[in-house]
């Protein structure tokens, strides 16, 4: 092939490079990270994306649940001074507040657990430290969620 051949695009010959044209198209080069049938399946899944989404969704719900909780417990009706067994019994007599507290417990614990998981991943540099801190975190979270759930479901106003 002559290197002095002019191409339709008007681009002159470049040191030994063939001039491409409609008749002589350049080879197609695949994008480096393009997913093809030959690309192995990702083994990671979308866990972190769902975690990110959960933080935002649970966060919006928790703003309502927790600020409502603070308003009832610390502001209305004399603030914290009215809180006691009788007050709890009165509130948990209503399924509305049982569901409110149950939802708040689960969402806040999972939201906080995922937040602390991120903090551990960020600051604990040794793999073993991360493993043990997260094992402790998950154990404490599961126990606290179960304990709280048990308390809400088995609450007995006539315990004494």
């Amino acid at each position: 092939m002559s290197t002095t051949e002019t191409t339709a695009s008007g681009i002159g010959p470049v040191e030994g490079a063939p001039g491409y044209s409609v008749e002589n198209p350049a080879p197609v080069i695949e994008a480096p990270r393009k997913r093809t049938k030959k690309t192995p399946k990702s083994t990671r899944g979308n866990f972190e994306m769902y975690g990110w989404l959960f933080m935002r969704l649970s966060g919006v719900v928790l703003v309502v649940l927790v600020l409502g909780h603070l308003l009832i417990q610390l502001v209305l009706d004399g603030g914290v001074s009215k809180v006691g067994f009788a007050f709890v019994a009165g509130r948990w007599a209503s399924p509305w507040w049982q569901v409110w507290d149950l939802l708040m417990l689960w969402l806040a614990m999972l939201h906080g657990c995922n937040g602390l998981r991120t903090v551990i991943n960020d600051y604990a540099e040794r793999a073993n430290t991360r493993l043990w801190l997260k094992a402790l975190l998950y154990t404490a979270t599961v126990w606290t969620i179960l304990l709280g759930t048990l308390v809400i479901f088995t609450f007995d106003p006539n315990i004494r």
Binding site: F85, G148, I159, R160
Partner: peptide, 14 residues
Amino acid sequence: VLDTALVRVSPEAY
């Protein structure tokens, strides 16, 4: 959660 769990122990403890 732990302090609230005391309602399952006794009204006095809570």
